[in-house]
Lab assay of single mutants.
Amino acid sequence: MFKRLMMVALLVIAPLSAATAADQTNPYKLMDEAAQKTFDRLKNEQPQIRANPDYLRTIVDQELLPYVQVKYAGALVLGQYYKSATPAQREAYFAAFREYLKQAYGQALAMYHGQTYQIAPEQPLGDKTIVPIRVTIIDPNGRPPVRLDFQWRKNSQTGNWQAYDMIAEGVSMITTKQNEWGTLLRTKGIDGLTAQLKSISQQKITLEEKK
């Protein structure tokens, strides 16, 4: 169930391209415009997507990853294993993690069937560096609404905000991946996880038929 919630949630996290980005210092504006741009692209490019579902990787690479804190999220997933990894191991892992996100997020976007969304009203940021933004996803086919909290983090150097995690039903996506990959990290280390991520990233994206 959580895996499905995570995939549905990713439908609204794909941010804007650099040329049309919203105010990078306001995570609420980023979330709002990102959702609108993403849904528009999914709707307008269905012919290309249906002809070649792996085209979704391109959308992810162009529109999402430049505005997601990939390395920060990847380091959180590694936890204690990050500090013990060599620079070469980290570089290989982050490259594999990025390719994994292209496949995983692309597969999530393949679930698009006309969903709509509501974003919580903007709250004062103050001096906060981590801000959760509640998004409610509404399914046109009558499924119950899904309420999610996207975690946005302020870059201490640039002042810009980027998304790095999502919490559904009190469970963090980062925590879920830590639990899912924990045994592999304990037995085969970061190299074993890197190899698995490379394998997963090679899987073809498949479209979910409308139910």
Rank of each mutant, 00 (worst) to 15 (best):
M1K: 03
M1L: 02
M1G: 00
F2C: 03
F2Y: 11
K3C: 01
K3M: 02
K3Q: 10
K3F: 05
K3N: 08
K3D: 00
R4C: 14
R4P: 02
R4I: 15
L5A: 02
L5T: 02
M6Y: 05
M6F: 10
V8L: 13
V8Q: 01
V8N: 01
A9I: 12
A9T: 06
A9K: 01
L10C: 04
L10R: 00
V12R: 00
V12W: 12
V12C: 14
I13A: 04
I13H: 03
I13Q: 01
I13R: 01
A14T: 13
A14H: 06
A14E: 05
A14V: 10
P15K: 12
L16A: 09
L16S: 07
L16F: 15
L16R: 02
L16Y: 10
S17Y: 07
S17V: 13
S17L: 08
A18R: 08
A18D: 13
A18K: 13
A18I: 14
A19T: 08
A19W: 03
T20F: 10
T20G: 09
A21S: 12
A21M: 10
A22S: 12
A22Q: 15
A22G: 09
Q24W: 12
Q24I: 09
Q24S: 13
T25K: 08
N26G: 06
P27A: 09
P27S: 06
K29S: 15
L30Q: 15
L30Y: 06
M31N: 04
M31P: 00
M31S: 01
M31G: 02
D32L: 07
E33F: 03
E33C: 08
E33N: 04
E33A: 10
A34K: 05
A34R: 03
A34V: 08
A35S: 13
Q36G: 08
Q36E: 07
Q36N: 14
Q36D: 14
Q36M: 15
T38G: 03
T38Q: 08
T38L: 13
F39S: 04
F39K: 02
D40T: 13
D40K: 11
D40Q: 10
R41T: 08
R41E: 05
L42Y: 06
L42D: 04
K43F: 09
K43I: 05
K43A: 13
N44L: 15
E45Y: 12
P47I: 09
P47Q: 12
P47N: 07
P47H: 10
Q48Y: 08
I49C: 12
I49S: 11
I49H: 05
N52C: 05
N52K: 14
P53L: 06
D54M: 12
D54G: 09
Y55S: 09
Y55K: 13
R57F: 15
T58P: 15
T58K: 10
I59H: 02
I59K: 02
V60Q: 05
V60M: 11
V60I: 15
V60G: 07
D61S: 12
D61N: 09
Q62Y: 09
E63N: 04
E63H: 04
E63C: 05
E63T: 10
L64I: 02
L65T: 09
P66T: 06
P66M: 06
Y67C: 04
Y67K: 03
Y67S: 06
Y67M: 03
V68K: 13
Q69W: 01
V70L: 06
V70D: 10
K71S: 07
K71R: 10
A73W: 01
A73Q: 07
A73C: 03
G74P: 01
G74S: 07
G74F: 00
V77T: 08
V77P: 08
V77F: 05
V77Y: 07
L78N: 04
L78E: 00
L78Q: 07
G79M: 01
G79F: 01
G79E: 01
Q80A: 09
Q80S: 07
Q80M: 09
Q80D: 01
Q80T: 14
Q80E: 02
S84W: 08
S84Q: 10
A85F: 05
A85R: 04
A85P: 06
T86F: 04
T86W: 03
T86L: 10
P87F: 11
P87C: 04
P87V: 09
A88E: 13
Q89C: 11
Q89W: 06
A92G: 11
Y93S: 04
Y93T: 03
F94Q: 05
A96M: 14
F97T: 08
F97G: 02
F97D: 05
R98Q: 14
E99M: 14
Y100N: 15
Y100H: 13
Y100C: 14
Y100E: 14
Y100G: 09
L101F: 12
K102M: 14
K102C: 13
K102V: 14
K102P: 05
K102Q: 11
Q103V: 15
A104N: 02
Y105C: 04
Y105N: 03
G106W: 04
G106V: 08
G106L: 03
G106D: 04
A108G: 04
A108H: 05
L109H: 08
L109P: 05
L109C: 06
L109M: 07
M111L: 09
Y112Q: 02
Y112G: 04
Y112I: 01
Y112P: 03
H113E: 10
H113Y: 12
H113F: 03
G114K: 08
G114M: 08
G114Y: 05
G114V: 06
Q115V: 01
T116K: 15
T116Q: 15
T116R: 15
T116A: 00
T116H: 15
Y117E: 09
Y117S: 15
Q118L: 13
Q118F: 07
I119E: 06
I119M: 07
A120F: 11
A120Y: 14
P121W: 09
E122W: 10
E122M: 14
E122F: 12
P124K: 12
L125A: 00
G126I: 09
G126A: 00
D127Y: 14
K128V: 12
K128G: 14
K128A: 01
T129H: 10
I130L: 05
I130W: 04
I130F: 01
P132Y: 10
R134N: 04
V135E: 02
I138T: 09
I138N: 10
D139W: 15
D139F: 13
P140M: 15
P140W: 13
N141K: 07
R143I: 04
R143G: 05
P144F: 11
P144R: 07
P145E: 05
V146S: 02
V146T: 06
R147L: 03
R147N: 05
R147E: 01
R147H: 01
L148F: 03
D149V: 06
F150A: 00
F150Y: 03
Q151K: 05
Q151W: 05
W152N: 08
R153I: 02
R153W: 00
N155Q: 02
N155A: 00
S156I: 02
S156T: 11
Q157D: 02
G159I: 10
G159H: 14
N160W: 11
N160T: 12
W161I: 00
Q162L: 06
Q162A: 04
Q162G: 06
A163I: 15
A163D: 08
Y164F: 02
Y164G: 07
D165K: 00
D165I: 00
M166L: 10
M166T: 05
M166S: 01
I167Q: 05
I167F: 02
V171H: 10
V171Y: 11
V171G: 00
V171S: 00
V171F: 00
V171C: 00
V171R: 03
V171W: 01
S172P: 00
I174G: 11
I174Q: 09
T175D: 02
T176W: 11
T176H: 03
K177Y: 15
Q178R: 09
Q178L: 02
N179Q: 09
N179V: 06
N179L: 03
E180M: 02
E180T: 03
W181I: 07
G182I: 13
T183H: 05
T183A: 00
L184Y: 07
L184F: 05
L185W: 12
L185A: 00
R186I: 01
T187H: 14
T187M: 08
T187F: 02
T187C: 06
G189V: 03
G189E: 02
I190A: 00
D191F: 08
G192Y: 13
L193K: 14
L193A: 00
L193C: 04
T194I: 06
T194S: 07
T194N: 13
T194Q: 10
A195C: 12
A195D: 10
A195P: 11
A195S: 11
A195L: 13
Q196D: 03
Q196R: 07
L197R: 14
K198T: 11
K198Y: 07
K198Q: 13
S199M: 12
S199T: 11
S199D: 14
I200E: 05
I200D: 12
I200R: 08
S201W: 15
Q202G: 10
Q202A: 03
K204A: 04
K204C: 09
I205G: 05
L207M: 14
L207C: 15
L207S: 15
L207H: 15
L207F: 12
E208G: 09
E208F: 13
E209I: 10
E209G: 12
K210H: 12
K210M: 10
K211A: 12
K211L: 08
K211E: 15
